[in-house]
Amino acid sequence: MLVLNSGSSSVKYRLLDMADGSRLASGLVERIGEGPVADHAAALRQVAEELDARHLGLDSPRLAAVGHRVVHGGRRFTEPTLITDEVVTGIEELVPLAPLHNPANLAGIRVARALRPDLPQVAVFDTAFHSTIPEHAARYAIDTRVAEAHGVRRYGFHGTSHAYVSRSTAELLGREVAETNTIVLHLGNGASASAVRGGVCVDTSMGLTPLEGLVMGTRSGDVDPAVVFHLARVGGMSNDEIDTLLNKRSGLLGLCGDNDMREIGRRMADGDGAARLAFDVYVHRLRKYVGAYTAVLGRVDAVAFTAGVGENSTAVRQAALDGLRGLGIEIDPVRNAVRGTGARIVSTADSPVVVAVVPTDEELEIARQTHTLIRS
């Protein structure tokens, strides 16, 4: 199974043996549009060459299917979908909801279909896992006619990661997924939280776009919507300037000039006040969402940290959950400080809510969903 994640300037790939989920090959083609990699067609040709060098060519009869990551499926695509011309048109129609991502995803799809038109190709949507969110959590309190005319509602993102981690957390606990309630905290440069009841997502922090919710590397997360009007009226900023501000010049970067939590940690150790404030704002938002999703779920069995910051920052995990004993959450400083690469528990032995670090694997999740679809 070949998994392709086509971004605007890169193509990430992984080839997996679905008999055991093992990785046969993986790689990243970057700087598309610069230098020798002129476009996505050139990038896919490079992927094919790299696979050929490992004797695992794109034309191999052993290759069963290609799974593509697609960021936005809207309300139309809520499960893995076999790609047809009609599906491609549907993804195109959703470009206004994900103008930076869906076009790049489509470029990878078109090239891969051209290279292997005989092969089943499957779209796995980031938004799909969150399509189960009930209407009262998905709807914004704006005029219904306006919302429906323009597709304004909560869609959520990082869905393949939240699906993988919620299931893996249940396995770590030795419980059935259907009996496990989990708060998943996907903390990378982009960050999102989800409330998962029995394997089904019931709320998530990202909304119409990936801008809403937690504080991120360069994105603001939650702000008063009137900030936009204020910046336009008082600051004289254009829509594009405000868009750039909130998506690319905010979050940790906007607060202290760095979006790397490791560097922020080093600066905090040196007594840097701006770095300390950025860290405190970041973990305060996390604590708010943990509290909110505890209320949404009613019973929480686990809080799972994943992605780059979630898996590696001892300080973020400790600060975000410190003092939440009243919610049944008690992190163990000794366990939390232990570095590891696998799924592990970092809460105290008697904590009613398990706190876990669960490495995510979005490519494996896409491959599994693709495999399940083509076998059915």
Results as ranks from 00 to 15, higher is better:
residue 5 N to F: 12
residue 11 V to Q: 02
residue 11 V to T: 10
residue 12 K to W: 07
residue 14 R to M: 13
residue 14 R to V: 11
residue 14 R to H: 01
residue 17 D to Q: 12
residue 20 D to P: 00
residue 22 S to M: 08
residue 28 L to I: 06
residue 28 L to C: 05
residue 30 E to I: 09
residue 31 R to C: 06
residue 32 I to L: 13
residue 37 V to L: 12
residue 37 V to P: 13
residue 39 D to H: 03
residue 39 D to W: 08
residue 43 A to H: 02
residue 44 L to M: 14
residue 47 V to E: 11
residue 48 A to Y: 04
residue 52 D to W: 04
residue 52 D to G: 10
residue 54 R to Q: 14
residue 54 R to N: 08
residue 59 D to W: 08
residue 61 P to H: 10
residue 63 L to D: 08
residue 67 G to R: 10
residue 72 H to K: 12
residue 79 E to C: 06
residue 81 T to R: 07
residue 83 I to G: 10
residue 84 T to E: 01
residue 85 D to I: 04
residue 86 E to I: 02
residue 93 E to Q: 14
residue 100 L to N: 10
residue 102 N to Y: 08
residue 109 I to S: 01
residue 124 V to I: 05
residue 125 F to Q: 00
residue 126 D to L: 08
residue 132 T to P: 13
residue 137 A to G: 09
residue 142 I to Y: 06
residue 143 D to C: 07
residue 148 E to D: 15
residue 152 V to C: 06
residue 154 R to K: 15
residue 154 R to A: 03
residue 155 Y to W: 00
residue 156 G to S: 06
residue 164 Y to E: 09
residue 164 Y to C: 07
residue 176 E to V: 13
residue 178 A to W: 09
residue 180 T to S: 14
residue 192 S to D: 06
residue 193 A to W: 02
residue 202 V to E: 01
residue 204 T to H: 02
residue 207 G to P: 08
residue 207 G to C: 12
residue 210 P to M: 04
residue 212 E to K: 04
residue 215 V to H: 00
residue 215 V to L: 03
residue 216 M to P: 10
residue 216 M to K: 00
residue 217 G to S: 07
residue 218 T to L: 03
residue 220 S to I: 02
residue 225 P to T: 02
residue 227 V to Q: 05
residue 227 V to P: 04
residue 233 R to M: 00
residue 235 G to N: 04
residue 237 M to Q: 13
residue 243 D to N: 11
residue 244 T to E: 15
residue 251 G to D: 03
residue 252 L to Q: 06
residue 252 L to T: 00
residue 253 L to Y: 04
residue 257 G to K: 02
residue 258 D to Y: 01
residue 261 M to T: 04
residue 270 D to R: 15
residue 272 D to Y: 05
residue 275 A to P: 15
residue 284 H to P: 03
residue 284 H to F: 10
residue 287 R to Y: 11
residue 288 K to E: 14
residue 290 V to K: 07
residue 292 A to N: 07
residue 297 L to F: 02
residue 301 D to V: 13
residue 302 A to E: 09
residue 302 A to W: 03
residue 304 A to K: 03
residue 311 E to P: 14
residue 311 E to C: 12
residue 312 N to D: 00
residue 314 T to C: 07
residue 317 R to T: 13
residue 320 A to N: 09
residue 322 D to T: 14
residue 325 R to F: 03
residue 329 I to Q: 07
residue 330 E to P: 12
residue 332 D to M: 11
residue 339 R to A: 15
residue 341 T to D: 12
residue 342 G to T: 14
residue 342 G to Y: 02
residue 348 T to D: 02
residue 348 T to E: 09
residue 350 D to F: 11
residue 358 V to H: 04
residue 359 P to A: 06
residue 359 P to L: 05
residue 367 A to C: 11
residue 368 R to F: 01
residue 371 H to K: 00
residue 373 L to A: 10
residue 373 L to R: 01
